[in-house]
């Protein structure tokens, strides 16, 4: 058995020389997960998971705790390598052969479940670090911020409504503001796929509405995957929903269709009362 923790070499060994822009999405599919299995000490967090994402779609992923949602995100972002299966970006980029940071560069961006921002840095600096561009240490030693960069930062900050707080340390932001900042960091990173884990946890009603609007507006130019427990929120944004259960797909389709799916009802009502 391949050790789940034997993660890829992180020192920038470029196995796959293709750039994100060179991804072949002629079939309209941006991400393929085929028969992905990842187990922890016998427990199969992912069990033969198959999932495809169309370019530009907005997909909601729901499922009870332990269904494998976060693990799936770990696999897509390259944080964990599965024991078996294939993960492709477009037709031609094998994500399993790429280190995490290369996947993050232009392909897949991720918002963590717990809002994670660089608390010691300023709000604007948080965005600045995630702007697209070379991530080489040498460049970072020399680089000075340019007008273009500053404009882009202001643009993102305006979008997420934090422009007034641009010089504050990120650590002093409220929970909801941190969520927004992290979404802003994703915007600055400008990946083709955005994985958003529980984006509205800890947000007020108004903030939730704005988040929903933002995510919907992002879809189309980007592919957005939202993992959320809040069914009301899912209802606001979803057109296609995937239900995960015990590491594989239980049901897929429109929200109404999955909500009427007897298997889904059994999982939710029979096993884990999903109140959250």
């Amino acid at each position: 058995m391949i050790d789940a923790y034997e993660e890829s070499a992180g020192m920038g060994e470029r196995i796959n020389q293709l750039k994100p822009g060179q991804a072949d999405i002629s079939h309209g599919t941006i991400l393929y997960l085929e028969d992905v299995t990842l187990s922890f000490d016998g427990f199969k967090a992912l069990n033969g998971l198959n999932l495809t994402l169309d370019d530009g779609e907005l997909r909601c992923i729901i499922g009870p705790n332990g269904a494998g949602k976060s693990t799936m995100m770990d696999v897509i972002t390259g944080r964990r390598k599965p024991q078996q299966g294939r993960v492709f970006f477009g037709q031609n980029i094998d994500l399993l052969k790429l280190p995490e940071h290369e996947i993050a560069n232009g392909m897949v961006g991720r918002k963590f479940q717990r809002p994670t921002v660089f608390e010691a840095l300023g709000v604007a600096e948080n965005i600045e670090l995630t702007l697209t561009g070379s991530r080489s240490p040498w460049r970072m030693l020399k680089v000075r911020s340019t007008t273009t960069e500053r404009d882009r930062i202001d643009e993102v900050l305006t979008t997420i409504g934090l422009i007034g707080l641009r010089d504050r340390p990120a650590g002093v932001l409220s929970h909801g503001q941190k969520q927004w900042l992290e979404i802003g960091m994703l915007l600055a990173q400008n990946p083709r796929i955005l994985l958003v884990d529980e984006p509205v946890a800890g947000m007020t009603g108004e903030e939730v509405v704005r988040t929903a609007e933002l995510l919907v507006s992002l879809a189309g130019t980007r592919t957005v995957v939202v993992v959320e427990h809040d069914m009301a929120f899912v209802r606001k944004i979803a057109n296609k929903v995937t239900v995960l259960h015990q590491g594989s797909v239980l049901a897929e389709g429109s929200l109404t269709s999955v909500q009427n799916n007897p298997k889904v009802i059994e999982v939710y009502l029979g096993e884990t009362p999903c109140s959250n």
């Binding site: 020192m11 920038g12 940071h101 993050a104 963590f112 660089f118």
Partner: peptide, 12 residues
Amino acid sequence: PRTRAAGYPVAQ
């Protein structure tokens, strides 16, 4: 993890 997810080769 955030830095890595932002595309930085942390090890380097």
